[in-house]
Design a protein around this nucleic acid. Structure first.
Lengths: 342, 342
DNA sequence: TTGAAAGCGCTAACAG
DNA sequence: CTGTTAGCGCTTTCAA
């Protein structure tokens, strides 16, 4: 591997000036020319490890996602997370940062050690962390105490003390509630995700809040685990008592399961009951009927996350907070009664 | 940040011995004890940048996936790739490697520069590359010439000169063909992916090869772009001429589109026509009927890829080649005639 | 078994 | 504007 010294030698200057020349600092134009052509001739690529050691910066971000053993890893299934990664990559690339990727379990006894390594090892300048469940956040202290640049993907409520991006689950739930009311539903059910899932908690809060505010009622609330099967089962449990006008499923997978159950029972969707999902997964256009759902804008979330860590890394800015508001994507599964026959 | 020197000072030894002690080299037991407790007391985390500079190794792998501008980014949609990443992470973690992630376009004019940086910058010890299309592979030369550790996810046919893992598309296509024949199909169609997609090419080869070998015939061949819509359209194009007994779709998305089209036309699946997809995407259990499909074992592919690069990094082994054979997952969409009514 | 010293590749401080 | 020197944090000869 050719190094700076070699380039300097070929150009007939000292390594120091070669460095200045290559980094666009003030040097004699002729000298720069010399150095640049020498570098090109030798296919010189600066060794980033060397650079990091002197600069104290690695220009790398770590994206870590936190799982939990007792629930299926929904990230695995949804492909949504890939959009987030691409968002992160988009801004990281543009700003000259590389991205490392890691998955840890929330139950991992040495999660703390992992984070300690992260801040100590010097391989990354900042971290984007995606906790998914309301669990033990003690590991956060390490990041906090050292004021290590990091941003969480977490609702405001859970991310009080740390920089975070909120994906607007509460607003999303509320949007669905309004849609149901507007379409004439009165007796309403929800199939939510695991009780400890932070997004699920917020979706439910936003949803039930506005349902009740607007004078309709919640007649059933079931918890699934975000899988198709659990949606299917939950729908069965709901129907056992009575058929609601509308059911909101906290993700598209469970909505697909619910749809499946209703089809088996020959209950018409749309028409007899309105069904809405969440995430705007690709699944939502494959179901029959196509699913009305909520789009989180995962790509934008990824961009926001990356922008915010990078800001902390480069400007030593204080903690940031922002919300990316999701948008309703109406297809046909939310229609009720006559409207469904159009 | 506390450094080795600090630990050494506290333990009352030289940095050199502290290093030896911490790295499990031969040192007086008492000295080691001293150093270890000092390290613990100071929460010492070795700086990996410093280590890298001396060792010449970063213990990091890069996973790069190659896109193409003129086709939808299927990786974005499938979630399959996430399984692959988890496979890579699983072995990387275990072996003490970190993983960087990047996405590049095959059409990017400075793809070559990107790879040159990769080998030159010293931030990664090896690369896993996932090209998806049969395109210009000139950038490979850089990796090749420098014998840089790298492994491709590519069919044998395309990966001749480089270490690679083959996902067994040809075998998978063949498995589907056999299933069709066994179920009594005679007039058979295929909805394939883009003509330049390496996996699509192999799937078709394996499929049509055994269909013809076993005396059935191909009555239609359409190309989609791996999306639901394209599957829908392709199915329409096929039906325009005649209804085949069976149609093999090169991925589950297109199969879902085909299913949708057939449902609209009130053609029964299973029963009138057999439909099989590929990938064993989660989509496949959400469709009606559940889709018979082929599982690529993406997690295992990721593990294989990681194992093979790491082997190259640590043992300077020569090029490796292996195939992870996919397996058929039968649900009900492949049944024909009476069998479908069971 | 341990310490002193050198060096990995680079950039920054300081002279000249 | 350019060269010399030092040093980032670590490991590794080489001596003692």
């Amino acid at each position: 591997m050719t190094k700076l010294k070699d380039v300097a030698a070929l150009a007939g200057v000292s390594p120091a000036t070669a460095s200045l020349a290559l980094n666009g600092r003030s040097v004699n134009a002729k000298t720069r020319q010399l150095v640049v052509t020498a570098a090109k001739q030798l296919n010189y690529v600066p060794n980033k490890i060397g650079q990091s050691l002197t600069n104290g910066r690695s220009n790398t971000l770590e994206l870590v996602i936190l799982n939990v053993a007792d629930h299926p890893n929904i990230v695995r299934k949804t492909a949504l997370f890939y959009y987030l990664m691409e968002g992160v990559l988009a801004v990281a690339d543009e700003q000259g940062f590389g991205v490392r990727f890691a998955v840890r379990s929330h139950d991992d006894p040495d999660l703390t050690a992992y984070f300690a390594d992260l801040v100590g090892a010097g391989t990354v300048d900042g971290a984007i962390v995606v906790p998914q469940f309301a669990r033990d956040y003690r590991f956060t202290h390490i990041l906090h105490d050292t004021t290590y640049p990091c941003v969480f993907l977490l609702p405001d409520r859970f991310g009080k003390d740390v920089s975070h991006v909120d994906m607007g689950n509460e607003a999303g739930g509320s949007q669905v509630a309004n849609l149901f009311i507007d379409v004439g539903a009165e007796r309403i059910a929800m199939i939510n995700g695991p009780v400890s899932h932070v997004d699920a908690i917020e979706r439910e809060r936003g949803f039930t809040g506005t349902i009740l505010d607007r004078g309709a009622m919640i007649v059933a609330l079931q918890h699934g685990d975000f899988t198709i099967e659990s949606g299917h089962a939950a729908m069965g449990a709901i129907i056992e008592r009575a058929l609601p006008d509308a059911v909101f499923c906290a993700n598209d997978y469970m909505a697909a399961g619910a749809l499946k159950f209703l089809r088996e029972r020959k209950i018409r969707v749309p028409g007899d009951v309105a069904v809405v999902g969440y995430d705007n997964n690709d699944l939502a256009i494959a179901t029959d009927p196509p699913l009305t759902t909520v789009d989180n804008h995962f790509f934008d979330l990824g961009k926001a996350l990356a922008e915010d860590v990078i800001a902390q890394v480069t400007c030593a800015d204080g903690p940031t907070t922002r919300t990316i508001v999701p948008t309703l994507v109406t297809r046909s599964s939310h229609l009720l009664g006559r409207a469904a026959d159009d």
